[in-house]
Design a protein around this nucleic acid. Structure first.
Lengths: 195, 195
DNA sequence: GTGATAGTGTACAGATCTGTCTATTTTTGG
DNA sequence: CCAAAAATAGACAGATCTGTACACTATCAC
């Protein structure tokens, strides 16, 4: 049976990204060193450097992977809902559950922006793209709820609400920030609907 | 004339805090080393370590100083306004101007929470206290605008709006996030007033 | 002036960091 | 089975980091 051998079983590269993602998410980018990553992953240092030219390149791949997982997880959580309003609410519920995870340490993109501001342009760009993608997704959820042409502006506002909730949840450790943000969003939405 | 000599002229301790504040704000806490701080301040390393037991202690003092300056600057900006609504709006205008400053690199407390999450409890606490103080200040500004008992809840929401604006401004480089947040806040306020 | 205090410069210890090099072993494709 | 590719362990270079030690000097109060 070559079947077991055939399945790449997760390449070393993917293992490294997965391990680094967890470590960077929990400990920050500067504070977690390459040695910690390879020791945790159980992979030789040279292997890391054959797959990634530098630590920053690894961080960039980690952020790309985080973006994929974030989208997949959020969309999988939203999709079962059919009602447009329920779908939008699910975004906030998803955030609430995220905030309640034991190792929650904020948004990896916000944190990267904080640590590498003006220093590593690529990471800054990845963070920006992540937020833009989220805003587009929000616009799609908002479209069936508001008048034509209002979705884009409201998506930017909802994006701001989510970023605010993340900040409050991180600094004050208050997972209810997600609910507060949804409460605000619903009222803003109601106002928009009434108009 | 001993007058010149009498004025401590800014103690070495204060010079160090001032220099470290600017450097940490722009470059982050891990990325900026002690050597950079003393070289920029033009002060011997031993002097730093006679005033502060460790780098983290220096960071803590920097955050305390940042909190003082933040409050003083914000209150000085708000105070000339008399109308309650204008006073509240001034908070957002102040943030907009902050976002537009050349070296804007986010909120030092949010950034500290991101870099030292779960690692240095004192810094986490300072960040939390800073946000709590801001929320109390917002509650004071909101009190004359809303029904008794609503100010506290709305202050938490406005605090979330400001955090959201900071996040958006940092990641997306969009200083207009402050205006967007105010636009949202005003609508939430209007809704509250109407009720 | 004089003694106490504060600051300076520099070297250094010890740790840690990124990234490289090399020799060896494991895995894999054909 | 065998050659090519991938991964390994570990030493190492060179930089940087925090924090300490020490001898020297300026400043200040009296």
């Amino acid at each position: 049976m070559t079947a077991l051998a055939r399945i790449p079983r997760a390449t070393k590269r993917d293992q490294l990204i997965d391990t680094a993602l967890r470590l960077f998410a929990a400990g920050g980018y500067h504070a977690v060193g390459i040695d910690t990553v390879i020791a945790t992953a159980g992979i030789a240092k040279q292997t890391l450097y054959t797959h990634f030219p530098s630590k920053n390149a690894l961080i960039a791949e980690v952020l790309r992977e985080r973006d994929r997982r974030f989208r997949a997880s959020l969309e999988a959580f939203v999709d079962p809902h059919e009602e447009p309003l329920a779908r939008l609410e699910a975004v906030f519920t998803w955030h609430r559950q995220w905030f309640e995870e034991p190792g929650f340490a904020g948004c990896m993109f916000n944190n990267a922006a904080a640590e590498f501001h003006g220093e590593v342009a690529e990471l800054q760009m990845l963070a920006r793209e992540h937020k833009q993608a989220l805003e587009r997704y929000l616009a799609g959820l908002l479209a069936p709820l508001v008048a034509q042409g209002n979705a884009a502006a409201l998506a930017a506002e909802f994006n701001l609400l989510l970023d605010g909730a993340i900040g409050v949840a991180l600094v004050s450790g208050d997972a209810k920030a997600a609910e507060r943000a949804w409460c605000m969003g619903r009222r803003l939405l109601g106002l928009k609907l009434a108009t």
